[in-house]
Write a protein that binds this DNA or RNA. Structure first.
Length: 548
RNA sequence: GGCCCAUUGGUCAAGUGGUCAAGACAUCGCCCUCUCACGGCGGUAACAGGGGUUCGAAUCCCCUAUGGGUCACCA
């Protein structure tokens, strides 16, 4: 009567979606976003855990789109999500792959296309006496609620307040004949004192009250609520491990109840703690509205390598990751096995500084080639000026990235691609000139005349063909000629005898060449720039400072 | 408010009845050094509070406080 068009039974669906043939211990997990297009850091975190769980056990992870709320749907949302996740290396074995595309044999993977399946199971619920139609309007429900609030009892649709709970067949027929729309509600047992223990893989044993609210299973538009869809889908898709944010913990009693009513095998549950943000002295969940860093595209825009974000998140799941990383500096992070039992039960603070630090380590371990490719790719999307510079002379750019790289103690000055330009600008005349126009950065303690004298004289003795030792020897020699000590210690012993020490002289040279007081190895920089550019900068320096 | 969960240095955290309570990031100092980094060495710094149980409690129990989650025809 309620579902006249439904001809398939749950048993038929059982046959259609048989148990998966997987090796012993293989886990089947899923990521189930609603298609808003926005991927929250917490979602990435949860999907990462699910993906690793599946793939570390030779299992399967699929992407299911929960599009049962048409009001919230955003155009292009699905492809956005798929793209965002794949950028972070999260790939699915089955499920939705794009707006109208999917793979795998347990589909459809879009809930909006599974209506008949839900109705078949809903019909079964009604047949078993575990569900009933409810014809209450919004106003009716409001009335019930305000009555309950007056009496200070738990609000909701249950027990004696569930007016349609015990309607007779005739009453239902009558309502239907009036053309009224209805929702389908679960007929929950009404014994509020009954409790059960949920064995959560992360939280451990949690004692909870049994669900006694007659929650909605099918909405008046016929679409299922999340709760009902989850139970049906995760059963038919043969999910073994349901990972979800811990905001779902409190609806677990309902889900378990539904599994039991339908006599379906229950999956394991793992509720993941949310990622928090500190604000002032209080913690709160990372918020989509308030925190730009809640959106994963933030990291992409900032140019954090995806792998850095992933390693940071892995570290957040299992803090022994850091030890593992120290012992396996070169292994891909996918080799690290995530254990649910080791996951924190309380929310972790998202620490951008630590992410940055980890990212520096990761970038420092890359080859110049990799840094070049990745920063170029980033620049092509977000910084056309940088892109032009990098692509104009690939060899030059790579030799820049190669400075102080690859050795025992690589530099760690790049955490994200937005750090690149400020670190290398002086290798490019246009940017260098622009920077110089804004002011020279010679130390205040040294006069313009002295700067000019030093550079003029130094440009005479500078030999581009020197190797590093020869270069530095020559610098020391030059220092003594100019009245500076050849090392810092000598200067400190007899400060009165010298104008300064070698550090002061190289400091001046450094600013002349780069307009920065702090740079990587000066010799390397000059070698990469080439003799012509170095000499130009020397000339420009003493030319400018000698004739005001 | 009801129901759940949590609380170890500034942050992430080891820890499951006996530890001088790990480690990492941050911070501070020293060393290395042509600058800045890197690196090395070292320092400051924690079991939310109160009761029990026990020879012994960060660890088990109770209370309090604080924080978080959730209470929809949203997921």
């Amino acid at each position: 009567m309620l579902f006249p068009d439904i001809d398939k039974t749950p048993e038929q669906y059982e046959l259609l979606y048989p148990k998966r043939q997987l090796p012993e211990g293989a886990k089947v997990t899923r990521f189930a976003p609603s298609p808003t297009g926005y991927v929250h850091m917490g979602s990435l975190y949860a999907s990462l855990v699910s993906e690793r769980l599946a793939h570390q056990s030779n299992g399967v992870i699929f992407l299911r789109v929960e599009d049962t709320d048409k009001k919230r749907e955003v155009e292009g949302g699905v492809s956005n999500i798929v793209r965002a996740l794949s950028r972070f290396g999260i790939n699915f074995d089955e499920g939705v792959t794009d707006i109208d595309d999917e793979k795998g044999s347990y589909g459809p993977y879009k809930q909006s296309e599974r209506m008949d399946i839900y109705k078949s199971f809903a019909k079964r619920m009604v047949e078993k006496g575990f569900a009933y139609p409810c014809f209450c309007s919004e106003e009716d429900l409001d009335k019930i609620r305000s009555r309950q609030e007056e009496k200070k009892i738990t609000p909701g649709y249950y027990g004696e307040y569930a007016v349609h709970r015990n309607s007779t067949l005739e009453q239902v027929k009558e309502e239907l004949s009036l053309g009224k729309s209805f929702v389908l509600r679960v007929k929950a047992p009404n014994n509020p004192d009954s409790r059960f223990i949920l064995n959560d893989l992360i939280k451990g044993d949690v004692e909870m009250p049994e669900n006694f609210q007659d929650m909605v299973l099918l909405k008046s538009d016929g679409l299922p609520t999340y709760h009902f869809a989850h139970v049906v889908d995760d059963h038919l898709m043969r999910t073994t491990h349901v990972t979800s944010g811990d905001e779902w913990l409190s609806s677990a009693p309902l889900h378990i109840q539904l599994f039991e009513m339908l006599e379906l095998e229950k999956p394991y549950f793992a509720h993941i703690s949310p990622i928090m943000k500190i604000e002032g002295s209080s913690k709160r969940k990372l918020s989509k509205r308030k925190d730009p860093e809640a959106d994963v595209s933030f990291y992409h825009e900032q140019g954090f390598p995806s792998i850095s974000v992933i390693e940071y998140l892995v570290n957040l799941t299992n803090s022994n990751f850091e030890d593992w990383r120290r012992e396996n500096p070169k292994s891909p992070n996918t080799d690290f096995e995530i254990e649910l039992e080791r996951m924190s039960v309380s929310g972790a603070m998202f620490d951008l500084i630590k992410l940055t630090d980890m990212s520096k380590d990761i970038v420092a371990g890359m080859t110049a080639e990799e840094v070049y490719d990745m920063s170029l790719k980033w620049a092509s999307e977000y910084d056309s000026e940088l892109w032009t510079l990098l692509s104009a002379d690939e060899k030059y750019a790579k030799s820049i990235f190669n400075i102080d790289r690859g050795g025992e103690k690589p530099r760690k000055d790049i955490a994200k691609w937005t750090d690149v330009k400020p670190n290398i600008f002086y290798f490019f005349d246009d940017l260098f000139d622009l920077d110089v126009a804004a002011g020279r950065n010679f130390p205040e303690a040294i006069t313009s005349d002295e700067v000019s004298r030093l550079i003029r004289e130094y440009s005479k003795v500078y030999n581009h063909k020197d190797n590093k030792d020869m270069w530095f020897d020559r610098v020391k020699e030059f220092c003594e000629e100019m009245g500076y000590s050849k090392d810092v210690k000598t200067f400190k012993k007899n400060p009165g005898v010298y104008k300064g020490h070698v550090g002061d002289v190289t400091g001046v040279i450094r600013v002349a060449v780069t307009n920065r007081r702090n740079t990587p190895d000066l010799y390397e920089i000059m070698q990469v720039m080439g003799e012509k550019k170095v000499m130009e900068r020397f000339d420009e320096t003493w030319g400018r400072f000698s004739c005001p």
